[in-house]
Design a binder for these strands. Structure first.
Lengths: 231, 231
DNA sequence: ATACCGACTTTAGTATGCAGTAGACAGTCG
DNA sequence: CGACTGTCTACTGCATACTAAAGTCGGTAT
């Protein structure tokens, strides 16, 4: 069966222009994360549109999604404002993340194949490397990649849809404290991966709960310290 | 036929004061729940716009949000399709709901005032009444109201933002089995409220876990039975 | 001097128009 | 008769134009 010269299809459909609304969405998140847009700032549709070189339409659609994801607050007849997270909110967010990640670790232990586990170890390596390189951005990225993959392994589409919403915001808040937390975090990751590899849901769950709890505690202590200093 | 805004009277006109996109959003969810729009159906923006008596713009924005909430699938350059939930997905959704509700019950036990508890008992009464009246729709509504209020009591804004996304969909899938599950469910509710009233986080959590787990199990058995019958 | 009222400006909300693309159908060639 | 290709249609994606409302500033009257 000479499957015609369609063999090139393996190359995938040629680079498709990403929908503008998606590009705008990504661009705005990037701007929020790197501080170009500061919390509380009023986002004027026309300005964003001009700055990004598109019309207001894609900007509006992106803002809708950003609201749904909790990045901006959309006040009726008044426009969009970059969401200003409070300390309580960060704590709450970390709490919710903990619960979801814990659940996802359980699922991962039940469904992961040997190959999946191998991939986890690869990501673990990358994290260790980032830690050694002392690159905060890379650490956070590797952390997100590992957790995302665990979520994926749980084979739960709903979870996979929900967690990124939470996780991306955690990533934003978490960046400043990624370095000091890093060392312990990656040791704990190793234990979790082992539990998943053994297919032990209870232990995976317990370890992940401990891990996320410690991250939350660490974050709270850092915040408390920071407030203590600034006051 | 000539464009007459009266044609859409069947689905009711849209009240102007609230943003159109919001009205359209609600109207579409209602249509999906009550079956006017069937799973898998292709939603043509222009058609919806005409039927609701608005332009395509608010319809587009509503569809964006509907995708974010998991009600429709938005395929690039092809439009919106009513999401067709699979059995696995329902199970997964119920699983995620379970962990979120469990977490929220713990929070509620830690924060609820006597007044909050009184409100819970009122909602419980309403649920019992709906059960007695044998009104499936009212049962589901009362159930949602009770769970929503518990979520609120946990004083967790992130949770309060996330759960409705999940819960509204659960509500959709759950309606058919609400009646047989109702009796036990409301007895369990009473126990949970008691635990919250006593401010006992561990017991509240355990009871809610049990409650949601039983609901999930019940749902799975019903589905299995339905498949068994139809095969 | 201050408080209230009204026009003005700015910006979100909504409608419509245009172009690009995917899918369907029919005509044509092997 | 079957498969391929060219065309045709219908829909989405994006842009622009218009409308309505909220906020602001200046003026006037008390």
């Amino acid at each position: 069966m000479p499957e015609t010269p369609m063999a090139m299809a393996a190359r995938g459909p040629i680079s498709r222009p990403v929908p503008l609304r998606q590009a705008v969405y990504d661009a705005l998140i990037e701007m929020i994360i790197n501080g170009t847009l500061t919390p509380g700032q009023h986002l004027v549709e026309a300005d964003l549109a001009e700055h990004l070189g598109v019309s207001r339409q894609p900007v509006r659609e992106a803002l809708q999604r950003l609201q749904a994801a909790g990045w901006v607050d959309l006040r009726p007849a008044q426009g969009a404002y970059v969401h200003a997270p409070t300390v309580e909110e960060c704590t709450q967010l970390l709490g919710v993340r903990a619960v979801l990640e814990t659940y996802s670790a359980r699922g991962a232990a039940q469904h992961a194949s040997a190959q999946d586990v191998a991939r986890l170890w690869e990501l673990q390596e990358a994290g260790i490397a980032a830690l050694a390189a002392d690159d905060a951005r890379a650490i956070v990225e590797a952390n997100a990649a590992l957790h995302t993959h665990i979520t994926h392994l749980s084979r739960n589409a709903v979870l996979a849809e929900l967690i990124p919403q939470v996780d991306q915001r955690v990533r934003w808040y978490y960046t400043p404290i990624a370095k000091p937390r890093g060392k312990d975090a990656w040791s704990e990751h190793a234990l979790i991966i082992e539990a998943i590899a053994e297919g032990d849901p209870d232990r995976s769950e317990a370890l992940m709960r401990q891990h996320t709890q410690r991250t939350t505690d660490f974050y709270c202590r850092q915040i408390a310290a920071a407030i203590g200093l600034s006051d």
